[in-house]
Design a protein around this nucleic acid. Structure first.
Length: 848
RNA sequence: GCCCCUGUGGCGGAAUGGUAGACGCGGCAGACUCAAAAUCUGUUGCCUUCACGGGCGUGCUGGUUCGAGUCCGGCCAGGGGCACCA
């Protein structure tokens, strides 16, 4: 029997699908629509295993929904602006445009090898002038709608990339791309007013019921709503300092006031206080990096000023500048209550400040309740707090707020941690911001008729700074308003802008305007979005904001771009380290008897734990190599097998071999079944082994359908193995029509996961249609349910036997049958049962 | 520091509060073969027993329940996120 020739078969079917335009989605259809989207890739030049997993999952769903009768939109594009192209330009002297499009061509070819059911007619790259022209149009419209503004901002400056980074793009005090230590600079920057939608972005999370709870929680925490009180302390120098607190109930436990080193007052004091200036500078070297601040010891600088307690002018609190107070949150100043805040406690212990408990838990005696090394943050009643004594925390908060508000000294406020989105980037390989600065007219948007603002043909990458800015002619233009000499904005957009609306552009990728209202009305929202958890916050939040903006501009009626979200796990592999601790690549190592050795030697190497495939750890496996060896169907099958899709998967060669064996097994099952009745033969009533196979077939159809509906690919795979086994083990005497039906179901169920193999098998079974065009099989409920079932019999919850009964057998009969079991009698040892729990069709539990 | 997730055989993992370990990988045994490869079949949690059987088992520890991998409380370990969120 000839083996299945994956290489030729896959090439053949890919050509057939392309030729017949199987996966081109019409924008009008009688069918219900289904929009399946995977996060589009950055064109790095080659696909990695993470892409393979991501696009396989989306492809299975797209093909499954198509078979179920949906009009499926499953597009692909390229997130093509960004720093790597610039780095390549600087390092290799290539044009970023050429580099990017060459990468796209290479990756497109690799993706096509995977046999994805994609509507390639909608493909675009964000660096296509046609795409970014439309984005510029949106920028101007957002600007006119009041969603864009320019402001001075204290920004993170990356001295290597010569670019500004958003706070959330700084990792450990270094640029998230360049790794260079970040400096601070004040620059005039463009912002999107995402905070205009804060409340809505938060409250709408509750309605995203097909999003992972984890992601909704992460977004909720990121938006960070907190209710509190804003009030001021009078300082000994005659000034006032505003603080924000969510715990005003603990005011009588205050023992200090602390300012952020970035607080204007701290900066002003530092001008005449060298030591303070040094302290502030030291803190700034820590950057905004969380880890650095985390591990840094709490420290402060006593300004010598004091602050009067709001309820007692004679009570003076010391005023510190403290390294743990953030300017970006609240007012940049706090009052410290060491007994009920861990950070304040550590600070107080260090500077020997009083620690007075003012909230005591239920049952504790206020007189001897003491704070040790842990602050008490739980509920309780107020103590040591004069007129607040005895109140619970919530009532005390309200009381303090009421008193201070009545005197006009405080304001109940809701604070969010979400800040506006800084989109300016000083990079040449991005979408130019279509604004013009005129000495006379100020900021003027580029006229619509002058769009797009194209990037210049040739850019010089020598030297730091932005080549757009350094270009001899590009930025010099006439003011659209007064006609005088003016300058273009040379900043480009954050690439998150590009990815914030591409899903809407896919609805009609060649529309004249940015988004076709009609097409977006038909396709949006995306029914299932699939991508990595690393985008759980920024990308998804920005896309949600942008969609609201598009709604405001009338491009769409939806606010939420992604009705369903699925975040897949990473692809991992064992790691290896040599004697001096360096990472070893997979092809430098060979395994024998469970141990790893340097290839060709007896030098043992350390086997590290499995980690996400990465260049730095040298544990990556190239998908092309696997596709070359086994074919795309095998790698697809591996990605779907065993591990639940949301969990990290470990790549193993043994597993891949197992997948490849299964490909051959299906092919053998199909091709060995010679002499079947012709296609479309009806199955007559059968019994015995033939009925068993029919039942197995319909059970598999039902189970796979349900599993794919819920993206439980690993379970669907297990069901298909079970059906294949049932077919292989079936009695040779059963009618060919039954065997045919089982094989056809097997092929169709496998179709979304191993599409090439399925087409070959379908053809081998005598069909002239394509699996890609065949409707999804339907399970007969009669055949899914079995008439007899096995019921467990327990004594005191321990299994003692089973009984086979007809479905629906009544309680008394079950009880009698259970009690007559020999092991049950033995366990009872002659005594009468105290009680017998009988759940029909489920279980009998005898309580002895 | 705060928040989130995950702990089940040798391994990846199944399991609406109702027979723990489906399915796959690996191992073992057998069939086919002169032999091997390939393939097929069976078997495979641990302890105990000649056997029948019995006991123990879902990170630990309490609880709820006739019955807990599943629900609740307390811990431990590993992983992830974050802007110390006052």
């Amino acid at each position: 029997m000839a083996r299945y020739d994956a290489k030729n078969s896959e090439k053949h079917w890919q050509a057939v699908w392309a030729e017949r335009q199987c996966f081109v989605a019409p924008n009008e259809s009688e069918k219900p629509k289904c929009y399946v989207l995977e996060m589009f890739p950055y064109p790095s030049g080659r696909i990695h295993m993470g892409h393979v997993r991501n696009y396989t999952m989306g492809d299975v769903l797209a093909r499954f929904r198509r078979a179920q009768g949906y009009n499926v939109l499953h597009p692909m594009g390229w997130d093509a602006f960004g720093l790597p192209a610039e780095n390549a330009a600087r390092e290799k002297g290539v044009d970023p445009r050429d580099w990017t499009y060459a990468n796209i061509a290479a990756m497109r070819a690799q993706l096509k090898q995977m046999g994805l059911a994609i509507d390639w007619s909608r493909e675009f790259a964000t660096c296509d002038p046609d795409y970014y022209a439309q984005q510029q149009r949106l920028f101007v419209e957002f600007y006119k709608a009041g969603l864009v503004y320019r402001a001075e901002a204290d920004v993170n400056w990356d001295p290597v990339d010569g670019t500004v980074l958003a706070n959330e793009q700084v990792i450990d005090g270094r640029g998230w791309r360049s790794g260079a230590p970040v400096e601070r600079r004040k620059l005039s920057q463009w912002f999107f007013k995402i905070t205009e939608y804060t409340d809505d972005l938060l409250s709408a999370l509750d309605r995203l019921d097909r999003w992972p709870e984890k992601v909704r929680l992460m977004q909720k925490n990121w938006i960070g709503r907190s209710e509190g009180l804003r009030f001021s302390f009078a300082l000994s120098n005659g000034e006032h300092v505003d603080v924000f607190s969510t715990r005003p109930d603990t005011l009588f436990g205050a023992s200090f006031v602390a300012l952020s080193p970035d607080h204007p007052l701290a900066e002003r004091l530092a001008k005449s206080d060298r030591k303070l200036a040094a302290f502030v500078a030291e803190r700034r070297r820590l950057g905004t990096a969380e880890e650095a601040i985390e591990t840094a010891e709490k420290s402060g600088y006593d300004t010598g000023l004091t602050a009067a307690h709001p309820f007692d002018p004679n009570w003076q609190l010391p005023v510190y500048v403290a390294n743990f107070v953030l300017m970006a949150y609240g007012t940049g100043a706090i009052f410290g209550c060491p007994a009920h805040d861990q950070r304040d406690l550590e600070f107080a212990r260090k500077y020997a400040l009083p620690v007075l408990p003012v909230v005591v838990p239920q049952g504790a005696n206020p007189k001897n309740f003491e704070i040790g090394s842990e602050a008490y943050v739980g509920p309780g009643h107020l103590a040591n707090s004069r007129f607040l004594d005895g109140l619970d925390v919530e009532r005390a908060k309200a009381e303090v707020a009421k008193l201070l508000e009545a005197e006009g000294r405080a304001e109940r406020t809701v604070h969010y941690r979400l800040r506006d989105w800084l989109v300016s980037r000083q990079r040449p390989w991005g979408c130019p911001i279509p604004m013009i600065r005129c000495g006379k007219c100020g900021l003027v948007p580029v006229k619509d008729s002058d769009l797009p603002v194209l990037l210049p043909e040739a850019l010089q990458f020598q030297g730091a700074g932005n080549p757009l800015d350094a270009h001899p002619t590009w930025k010099h233009v006439e003011c659209p308003q007064c006609g005088g000499a003016a300058e273009r904005e040379t900043d480009t957009c954050d690439t998150f802008v590009d990815s914030s609306w591409y899903f809407a552009r896919f609805c009609d990728a060649r529309a004249d305007g940015p988004v076709s209202r009609k097409a977006a009305g038909y396709w949006l929202p995306v029914d299932q979005y699939i991508g990595g958890i690393e985008h759980a916050i920024l990308h998804l939040l920005y896309a949600r904001f942008f969609t609201r903006g598009l709604h405001r501009l009338g491009y769409t009626d939806v606010d939420e771009p992604f009705a369903g979200l699925f975040t897949q796990g990473m692809v991992c592999h064992e790691t290896y380290k040599g004697h001096n601790g360096q990472w070893l690549a997979l092809d430098e190592v060979e395994k024998r008897d469970g141990k790893a050795y340097l290839k060709g030697t007896d030098a043992e190497v350390t086997i590290g734990r499995s980690e996400a495939m990465s260049k730095s750890k040298k544990n990556g496996i190239a998908p092309e190599a696997i596709i070359d060896l086994y074919g795309a169907d095998t790698i697809r099958w591996f990605m779907l097998s065993d591990t639940p899709p949301e969990r990290d998967v470990e790549w193993t060669n043994e597993g891949a071999e197992g997948c490849w064996r299964f490909v051959q097994r299906i092919w053998r099952l199909v091709t060995e079944a010679a002499g079947l009745p012709p296609p479309h033969t009806n199955v007559d009533a059968v019994d015995g082994p033939a009925l068993d196979l029919r039942r197995a077939t319909h059970r598999a159809i039902a189970a796979v359908t349900e599993d794919l509906d819920n993206l439980r690919f690993n379970r669907a795979v297990a069901q298909i193995y079970t059906l294949a086994h049932a077919i292989g083990a079936a009695d040779p005497s059963i009618p060919g029509s039954v065997r045919r039906q089982a094989l056809e179901a097997l092929v169709l169920l496998t179709g979304p996961m191993m599409p090439h193999l399925a087409e070959s098998c379908w053809q081998a079974l005598g069909h002239e249609t394509l699996v890609a065009d065949v409707p999804w099989p339907k399970a007969d409920p009669e055949l899914v349910r079995s008439d007899t079932i096995t019921i467990a019999v327990q004594v005191n919850g321990k299994l003692r036997g089973t009984i086979d009964v007809a479905r629906g057998t009544a309680q008394p009969a079950l009880e009698t049958a259970a009690l007559s079991l020999e092991p049950v009698a033995r366990a009872l040892a002659g005594k009468a049962p105290r009680r017998v729990i009988v759940v029909p069709d489920r279980i009998v539990n005898v309580v002895a």
